[in-house]
Design a protein around this nucleic acid. Structure first.
Lengths: 347, 347
DNA sequence: TTGTATGCGTTATCAT
DNA sequence: ATGATAACGCATACAA
């Protein structure tokens, strides 16, 4: 067969030679120039040669010659978290749509590696970086991160964050404010009066913002949140469980636990149940995000739907076409999803 | 500030010039050659210049000069599926471990794009491609895919699949055989005697292999599977639900539904319950895979744990260090996880 | 140890 | 319309 020796790859020159044309013509015939056109006959011949040799262009060489790549970088905390998985998946689709490909990086539990990851992507000369925030203990950008972003941007790189504020960087955010309002109104109407708020890490801006939004929204409904009824913990399932345990041990008297995201709610719910609390009769639960696996938990969890797909699409569009100066912030609407974890409460 | 005009990036030449050394010295000082060493003083000066200019190497140029990249390609069906998410996450960690980065591609529902995706990754000259099979309707490699893989391999590329057979390609597989055996034994001991097998697509080799393994394993326990009690459907949650509905409408008399993966089991379980079946008393359920979200479903699902992390690590190692000729197949052990969806059955 | 020069595969700018 | 040829940014064989 036409298999060449391993390690070698047919180059454009090989193709040109095989077709008996110049390198330039081969290039134009295969990857098409915007200015030049190749004659019908030659084009056919070149294409045939390319096929015959099994030619595949070298994207790295193209990147260098063109001065730009077709890669976009995506940074998430942990793909195991359904929220990130959903966003990453949508991002992948959106990228394919625009004929780009994804370089995906996860930071695991190490926020401190964030700057390093950005530098890596910088090295790859990705066209844009989408930084998906949301589960790190703290999401205040460190000096390291800021300078890495700054270097990248100074090279013409584009950055946009999702659910995370970085000075001078465009961002796409969830309308936590409105979500809290919808949920608070719903709970009030159902008869809930003493909420327990399961907040995220105290250093996490989304956690702080969102819980503040809940406190306000509840106040608007005439429901005051007792200071002891706001517990901070990790933005994870375990975090939710721990917060719930703390609440139970403190013997708080509440009728609904409002978690700042779904996984926390699930963790808290499991913990409550494990401690003999009747869910949802004795204690109701709400989440935030509407991750897919929610459809299989019992009772199904009342939550606020975050359209992760538009989140991703908007972020990518913003990254590629936006101003790129931090003035292009976008907020995506959310929607209450009432389910079984918050039954109507008898007075 | 030292911000350069957007679009431009300081190059190694700039650094060399700034430090007053040659290009070669700058290169060696920054990325360290294995043969050459740079004097202490000069190295410092170069590094300082690099820092001062905000220099970041161009990975594309390096790739070209070195003739090799640090990228590995990963192809999954859908990140929204917890199984793929888990594998991809583990892959990301494994890649970081080896100082590589991930180029992630999802095929969505379009198996037919698989060849195209491989060609793309080929273009990028990724060091290796890990193809994670498992949810496509059919996973028989098409001629398109085969030739794309062949071209890539002939260039020195490495391919390994997970849970999918492609001729001449190394693969990492789950020990379905043993998983079926463990589960069958468990079910038999608990008193189950008439199983319903929820299989995957008829064209899907994993589905076929695994259900055959179950039929055998059950037979070994003296349990025969009635032909009508093996239903094929999609490898998805919806597929599971549909299969369950068909079984219910057919009025099958069974005591346990054995799904070929977790999401099918969850879909089937929900469907059964929606149709008034008491779960698990009236009908028990088992899955395969042990995806994380299982901990929040009630009753918790008995399943077979697939160590997705070692799956990913092994695949990557095999891809990078293996023979690369299809003789390096690896099988990873699985483990029964008995939970509440299969209670002991009163004779 | 340091510097010079060449090549990696492609695009783009010139001529022709 | 086609063909030379110069970049692109870096690593390395060779020379000093």
């Amino acid at each position: 067969m036409g298999r060449r020796t391993p390690g070698s790859a047919p180059t454009l020159s090989d193709v040109a030679q095989h077709a008996g044309v110049s390198l330039a013509t081969a290039s134009r015939a295969i990857n098409g120039s915007q200015t030049r056109v190749v004659g019908e006959e030659l084009r056919e011949r070149v294409l045939a040669s390319a096929r015959a040799l099994g030619y595949a262009p070298d994207a790295n060489a193209q990147a260098m010659a063109r001065g730009t790549t077709r890669a976009v970088g995506v940074i998430v905390h942990d793909l195991t978290d359904p929220y990130f998985a959903a966003v990453a998946d949508a991002m992948s689709r959106a990228a394919t749509e625009r004929d780009l490909f994804l370089t995906l990086a996860t930071t695991g539990n190490h926020v401190e590696h964030l700057a390093e990851v950005v530098a890596q992507l910088d090295t790859l000369r990705v066209r844009a970086i989408v930084l998906v925030g949301g589960r790190w203990k703290a999401n205040q950008p460190t000096a390291d991160l800021l300078s890495a972003v700054d270097r990248y941007v100074s090279r013409g790189g584009r950055v946009v964050t999702i659910g995370m504020e970085v000075p001078g960087v465009d961002s796409v955010n969830v309308d936590s404010e409105d979500g809290a309002r919808q949920l608070a109104r719903h709970l009030h109407r159902l008869g809930y009066r003493s909420p327990l708020i399961l907040s995220g890490p105290e250093l996490h801006s989304t956690a702080v913002t969102r819980s503040a939004a809940f406190v306000r929204a509840l106040a608007d409904e005439g429901i005051a949140v007792h200071p002891d009824h706001l517990i901070s913990s990790d933005f994870t399932r375990t975090g939710g469980a721990i917060a719930m345990r703390m609440a139970l041990e403190a013997g708080v008297d509440v009728d609904v636990a409002i978690a700042m995201n779904d996984v926390m709610a699930l963790g808290a719910m499991a913990e409550a149940r494990a401690n003999g609390v009747a869910v949802p009769q004795e204690l109701a639960f709400t989440g935030f995000g509407d991750i897919p696996s929610l459809q299989d938990v019992i009772p199904s969890l009342t939550t606020v739907h975050i359209p992760s797909s538009s989140l991703a699409t908007l972020a990518l569009n913003l990254a590629l076409d936006g101003p790129g100066d931090g003035t292009g912030d976008v907020t995506v609407p959310v929607m209450l999803v009432a389910r079984d974890s918050t039954p109507e409460r008898a007075g």
